[in-house]
Design a binder for these strands. Sequence first.
DNA 1: CCATGTGAAAGCGTTCACAGCG
DNA 2: CGCTGTGAACGCTTTCACATGG
Lengths: 218, 218
Amino acid sequence: MASARRIPEATVARLPLYLRVLGEAATERTTTLSSDVLAARAGVNAAQVRKDLSFLGSYGTRGVGYDVDYLVRQINRQLGLDDDRRVAIVGAGNLGQALASYAGFPERGFQVVAAFDADPAKIGSRLGSTVVSAVTDMPRILREKDVEIAIITTPASVAQGVANALIKAGVGSILNFAPTTVIVPSQVAVRQVDLGIELQILSFYHHHIDTTAATAGS
Amino acid sequence: MASARRIPEATVARLPLYLRVLGEAATERTTTLSSDVLAARAGVNAAQVRKDLSFLGSYGTRGVGYDVDYLVRQINRQLGLDDDRRVAIVGAGNLGQALASYAGFPERGFQVVAAFDADPAKIGSRLGSTVVSAVTDMPRILREKDVEIAIITTPASVAQGVANALIKAGVGSILNFAPTTVIVPSQVAVRQVDLGIELQILSFYHHHIDTTAATAGS
DNA sequence: CCATGTGAAAGCGTTCACAGCG
DNA sequence: CGCTGTGAACGCTTTCACATGG
C-alpha cells in the first residue's frame, strides 16, 4: 500500500539511475526485473531499491519483480519527464560545446533551444543544433522560448551574475558547471557540478589507501 | 584538540569546496576567514564548516577565524594534493575534448598525461596538450606514465570493459562520465557523473514546485 | 567580546529481517 | 516458494547550543 508519499531527496537522486538501468533492460527485451538484479546493475543495495520504489506506490509483483515498461512510465511521471523540457546553455566554451552535442540530452527529453555567450566572436556560431546569441538578448529569448532549465558553463567570475539574470527571466532550475558556488533563492533548484572537485575527492581516497568505502555516486 | 581523526565521507566531499572558497579569498588578499563567511560563500551551514574543519585539527583562532593560507595548506595535505596527480582520459569525443582543455585541472594539480580512443581516425590527434593513443596501447602507456586517475568519456556500451582494463593496469581511481554504472572492486575509488541524470533531478524539483529544499551539491 | 571547537540532540538515510502476498 | 513491501534498528550527518579560550 501507500501510494504517493513525499519522496526523500536521496531517493529522487536515484530514480534517474533506475530509469537508466530499466532502459538498458528494455533494449535487451527483458520484461521483468527483480530488486536484486536492478540493485546489482545500479550498484546499490536491493533493500534500497525496494524502499525507493515503494515511495512511488506498490508497483511490483511479489514472487516476480517489477514490470519494466510500467515502472519506466511511473518513474518518468514522477520526475516530470512526460513531455520535453526546454534547456538553455550559457557559455559557449569547450564544455558548452560538448554539452550542446551530448546525445544523452535529447534521448532523455531535454531539448537545447538556446545558447548564449558574451564573446561577440562566438555569436552566430552553431552550438549543437542551436545558434549562439548575445547574453544581452538573454532575458527576451529565454521568455520567448519558455526555457525551464539553464546550464551554466561560463567562467566562475561571471557565474553568479548569469544565475541572477536567469532567475529574473523566470528560469526555475540551474545546473552550474562553473567552479564557484552560485547562491539562489530557495524556490529555485540548483545543482552544482565541479569537475575539479570530483578529481580532488578521488585524490583523497587514492592518498588514503586504507579507509572504508571508496565508492560514491552522482 | 583532537588532530587527525578519521574523516567522514561527507566531510571529504566538502573539503574541496572550502578549498575553492579559500582560493578566491586569497586572490582578494583576505588573510582570515570566519566559519560564518566561509559557510556563506560555500552555501553551507557555519556549524558544518567548523565541524568539518575540526576533523583536520584545531586550526582556527577563537575570536578571529581561520588563517586562509595555513588552512589551504592543511586541506591540500589531507586531500593528497601536495604533488601533481597524473590523469588519463579514455574517449576522445566532445566531452573528452572539453575535459582535456579544462583549465580547472592543471590549476588544481591534475596533469592530463595520456588520452585514448578506439577510433583509428582519432589516434594521433591532439587532445589538449597530449596526443590520442590507441586503446590497445593503453596498459603499456598507463604504466609507463604512472597514471593514478582515469576519466572515462566513452559510450556506455564499452565503459565497463574500459574500467576493467584500467584497473588491471593499476589505475586506482576512476571518474566515470559514461551514462552507465561501472562496477569496481572495493579497493578502487569511483565517482559516477551522469550529466543527463543531473537534469532529470532538476526536472523533478521543477515539476513539484512545492516540496522542501531544492538545492543540492556536487 | 567574538568565533572556535564540540558534546548532545535531532534528523536522515541505509540496511536488516521478516511478514505478507502472488 | 520467491520476491515485494515495510517496521524497526542502526549508523551517519546535520544542526543546535554553549563552554572554552584567544
